[in-house]
Design a protein around this nucleic acid. Structure first.
Length: 568
RNA sequence: CGGGGUGUAGCUCAGCCUGGUAGAGCACUUGCUUCGGGAGCAAGGGGCCGGAGGUUCGAAUCCUCUCAUCCCGACCA
């Protein structure tokens, strides 16, 4: 490709509304342009990268035996009503009406559609297992799109759905997808981890997320430093410390005027955070519930929602706390709460002896409360978030926490959708059986951004070879003055192209500094500079973007040399 | 959805407080010089100052409403 014929829309200044480095560089390199909040146009340079990511995903999905399909982006409301998600999904689902006032949505995901297709097409167990995928535009009306294509409203996703007669078959495909995903992210040249994850609103059983490690990631991931345990902090558990066996003391009510926080309570009463059990009032599916957790811990709202079997969960407002418990925020405690309230104690807080807690009365707290003595022990559940340094649940190692960008997610759906849509096939006995499903997503457009998060420097992007928009930048020095340089550059360009190497030939009438800066900004992995000086010696200057090292190559050897670089 | 910020040239921003008819740098066009790390000089094109209403002789500037957008939080395969 000749730069003079290519829309190379680089900009020097960093756009004001770009926060993370990948967003800034994608705008500066001229890969994307914003149309509206969360909606982006892919310019030629960006699209080349996107297509490379798609190609790798497609190749590996095909290799794993999945079949490609393409489903409509717009889906009828009836299917979503059949699965029950029309009402569940909320405002994130973009609902639209056609000219006949019939309701549709722009698909945020395709479980309903694929299940509808398969219930019509597959009749026999002999056709199973089967895995279908597509690479397609999705729309989710995010409350707050941000970070460019990282969290856009419209985005490209590879979604796959597998169908099985039984769980054993599902597990097999699930494992195959797990290893396929690992191959894909390895091919893409990304540092990633597979972690245990929550299934979220999509429902189902087991689930793993694939995260590209980056400080700008929106998710926190807990890792064991010894074994391979890794989990999203939404899910992560740690081993409880051994319970203490201290003597039960008599409870005592103390005045604590104006106390609001655990810190103030600890200071005023002269006790440690571990000896405080705080009470957190939540509204779960609009019904109140109270969680008791250690003063030093954070309530994990995902775990809390699971513990209640609730779909939505939020912290209660101050007025709601007062209405529900009769005590203002800061003074709620387990003793003498209204008996009708749902209460759950965290497994760690359940081990605490002689703890302090609110007295459900303004300006009073209890000290030396004990479960089973002063207060009946409520339902116990793990509802706290793990902290750095805690013990791994699987081994004697310790947990550390890093940030990650979720680029893939695999689920064992089970029969949630096949049941709802009555997707059955006949088993060996000729009996109709509800198929078991798995689903497997990859955020294709998000991968482009996450690759940049992991591969950049002060000059710009540094593409991994596998997804670089071009392999080589060919930069002639003063080609417009030197006939010799022009001749040699044109010849070399033809030879490289003929060898199947993707070359970006900078034939603009630009100064060298401009060319260098542009090629570094857009991240082309290899650079060939051709000038009068080199021509005199029959060489061309070769340089690697990532290492900033290079050497002179004999003109006759350039094609072979570049081929070797690209296949290594 | 709560809190905060910002809308002035394609981009980054100044001007607004203290009303008087539009600015800089970058980018773009042309010419000359320069020519291996984002050149210099000169000339030029480009803005309904987000939109609507109001105050005023006069509004980018003051007031009201509205729209958009960004950040923090809540939410989120």
């Amino acid at each position: 490709m000749r730069v003079s014929r290519f829309l190379l829309s680089t900009v020097k200044e960093t756009p004001a509304d770009a926060e993370v480095i990948s967003h800034q560089l994608m705008l500066r390199a001229g890969m994307i342009r914003k149309l509206a909040a969360g909606l982006y146009t892919w310019l030629p340079l960006g699209l080349r990268v996107l297509r490379k990511v798609e190609a790798i995903v497609r190749e590996e999905m095909d290799r794993a035996g999945a079949q490609e399909v393409l489903m409509p982006a717009v889906q009828p409301a009836e299917l979503w009503q059949e699965s029950g998600r029309w009402n569940q999904y909320g405002a994130e689902l973009l609902r639209i009406k056609d000219r006949h006032h019939r309701e549709f949505c722009f698909g945020p995901t395709h479980e309903e559609v694929i299940t509808d297709v398969i219930r019509r097409e597959i009749r026999s167990y002999k056709q199973l297992p089967a895995n279908f995928y597509q690479i397609q535009t999705k729309f989710r009306d995010e409350t707050r799109p941000r970070f460019g294509v990282m969290r856009a409203r419209e985005f490209i996703m590879k979604d796959a759905y597998s169908f099985h007669l039984d769980l054993a078959s599902l597990q097999e495909t699930y494992d195959l997808m797990h290893s396929t995903y690992s191959r894909i992210f390895t091919c893409l040249g990304l540092q990633f981890r597979a972690v245990e994850a929550d299934t979220g609103s999509i429902g189902g059983r087991s689930s793993h997320e694939f995260h590209v490690l980056a400080d700008s990631g929106e998710d926190a991931i807990a890792f064991c430093d010894t074994c391979d345990y890794a989990a999203n902090v939404e899910m992560a558990v740690s081993r409880l410390p051994a319970p203490s066996h201290e003597a039960v003391r008599a409870k005592e009510k103390v005045t604590t005027p104006g106390i609001r926080t655990v810190d103030e309570q600890a200071t005023m009463l002269g006790i440690s955070h571990e000896r405080i059990v705080k009470s957190i009032v939540v509204m779960a599916d609009d019904k109140p519930a109270v969680f008791f957790i250690c003063g030093s811990d954070d309530l994990n709202t995902i775990k809390a929602a699971h513990a209640l079997g609730a779909i939505t969960l939020r912290l209660a407002e101050a007025a709601e706390v007062l209405a529900v418990t009769g005590a203002p925020v800061g003074f709620v405690g387990p003793l003498n709460l209204p008996a009708t309230l749902t209460v759950i104690v965290d497994s760690q807080a359940a081990q605490t002896h002689n703890f302090s807690s609110g007295a459900n009365q303004v300006d009073y707290h209890w000290i030396n409360l004990n479960w089973g003595v002063d207060v009946p022990l409520p339902t116990v559940a793990d509802v706290r978030s793990v902290c750095i340094g805690e013990q791994c649940p699987r081994c004697d190692g310790h947990l550390s926490i890093r940030r990650g960008i979720e680029v893939g997610h695999i689920f064992q759906l089970g029969t949630k959708y096949s049941q709802a849509l009555n997707a059955t096939c006949l088993d060996e006995q000729g009996k109709a059986t509800v198929m078991t499903m798995g689903c497997y997503g990859i955020g294709v457009s998000r991968i482009v951004a996450s690759a940049i998060e992991q591969n950049n420097d002060a000059q710009g992007i540094i593409w991994p070879n596998s997804i670089a928009p071009f392999h080589v930048a060919l930069l002639p020095m003063n080609m417009h003055k030197s006939y010799r340089v022009r001749e040699a550059a044109e010849k070399l360009y033809d030879e490289l192209c003929a060898a199947g190497i993707e070359v970006l030939f900078d034939d603009r009438k630009e100064r060298p500094g401009v060319m260098f800066a542009d090629m570094e900004l857009i991240g082309i992995p290899y650079r060939l500079v051709l000038g009068e000086r080199g021509l005199d010696e029959g060489v061309i200057e070769y340089k690697e973007r990532r290492t900033n090292t290079g050497q002179n190559i004999g003109l006759a050897d350039v094609v072979a040399f570049m081929q070797a670089q690209l296949t290594q």
